[in-house]
Design a protein around this nucleic acid. Structure first.
Lengths: 219, 219
DNA sequence: CCTGAGTTTGAATCACCAGTCAACTCCATC
DNA sequence: GATGGAGTTGACTGGTGATTCAAACTCAGG
């Protein structure tokens, strides 16, 4: 067997301008969010792509590998979209508020993030027993915390925020808070609405970084 | 016996003083923590109980029902053990510290909580697509937040804590923080050790409730 | 002892699904 | 206009595991 992972990309791309690998990964991610990792069958993924089941195994060594790759692929895509979005904003405070908004499942119509959080939970479950995925998860998670810490550092560099607790520490605390609350919101908990989560995240962020919340906060 | 028609419980209990339902539920919970919900087979559960696979289905309508019941059963058991443990302590602060310690996966040798947190993640995944379990989850989760809020209220009633933010609000924030950090610790994240999680939880708790941390904190 | 309801077994059934494979299509190249 | 290889198909295989079931077993009460 040749090294399919690297070789047929260029070839596949010729066909219709779309890479089959990517197409399958995206289809897989969508199926996983729809049916759950455990209920995802190769057949489902093939149907989403409009191809036959055999082709899926032609591009991926096994179902397991495909699923794991799809999980990290989708997560990566979401992360990059977020990073791009944040970069447009200058003020550290705006960036932080935007990051929070982007993290609240279902808050922004255009960035629901419902799927993303669902995928995170699937990653967690699987990472418990899959060392390779566990390693990936740590990288992804660290990057996510880092993006919070970076905003704090940037705000301090420009004098927008005062100095205080270690930025990485704040990243971990705020990141964990967001994770925990996002789970509740994702689960449709009647006591934790998206707006409520948003407010709590802002409050804790303000307290951690050490600034006062204005009565009227900009959207 | 009133329920003879529906409940074989009383009968089974005669045998060796142990209820078969419970025995199976406990075995199921252990298998789930060992192999993961998705990889749990009836055969495995039967083996743990030392009975034949057929018997499992004699006591439970289907594998699915059994698994869901096992998840909430085990969670309930852990919660009750925690509540019992906390009740022994008088000081609200001690209770809060103990609650945190009990929540950190792997911190206390006798209460590792590794399984419990693993079960939580399984519950979350499944609750995404199982409305019945989703409802159960909300009850369990609320109870857990409540136990934090209750400690805060108690501390205020006795004057141990000052008044401040709504206790339920604190319960949600601290609860979410613990959830989020516990995931990291459970995943063996190299940046979040059990001790680190413990420290961060204490810091945030102190800040939320509004008291100073002593330099040397009691175990 | 008998009897019968409750319990337990383990073999048989049944559906499902990952992964295989031989054949076919489509092009690019010669 | 042949050749060959990548891409694609869909029927097939093999294993697995939930669920069923008829038979066997247990034991409390008659």
């Amino acid at each position: 067997m040749a090294f399919r992972t690297e070789a047929p990309l260029a070839r596949a791309r010729q066909k219709d301008g779309k890479d089959r690998h990517q197409e399958i990964l995206e289809a897989a991610a969508r199926v996983i969010t729809d049916r759950g990792l455990a209920e995802t069958r190769i057949q489902d993924i093939a149907e989403r792509c409009g191809v036959s089941p055999g082709l899926i195994l032609y591009y991926f060594e096994s179902k397991d590998r495909l699923l794991v790759e799809a999980l990290t692929y989708a997560n990566d895509k979401y992360y990059l979209a977020q990073a791009r979005d944040l970069r447009r904003l200058d003020s550290a405070r705006d960036q932080l508020w935007r990051l929070i908004d982007l993290s609240v499942p279902g808050l922004l119509p255009d960035f629901e993030r419902l799927e993303e959080w669902a995928l995170w939970i699937e990653i967690w479950v699987r990472a418990l027993r899959d060392p390779a995925l566990a390693k990936e998860r740590e990288v992804l998670d660290r990057r996510w915390r880092q993006s919070i810490a970076d905003i704090v550092r940037q705000g301090r560099a420009t004098g927008e925020f005062d100095d205080g607790e270690e930025a990485d520490e704040i990243g971990m605390k705020l990141g964990a808070l967001i994770d925990g609350l996002a789970i509740q919101v994702l689960m449709n908990d009647t006591q934790v609405s998206p707006e409520h989560m948003q407010r709590m995240c802002r409050e804790v962020a303000a307290s951690l970084i050490g600034f006062k919340l204005e009565p009227a906060t900009p959207a």
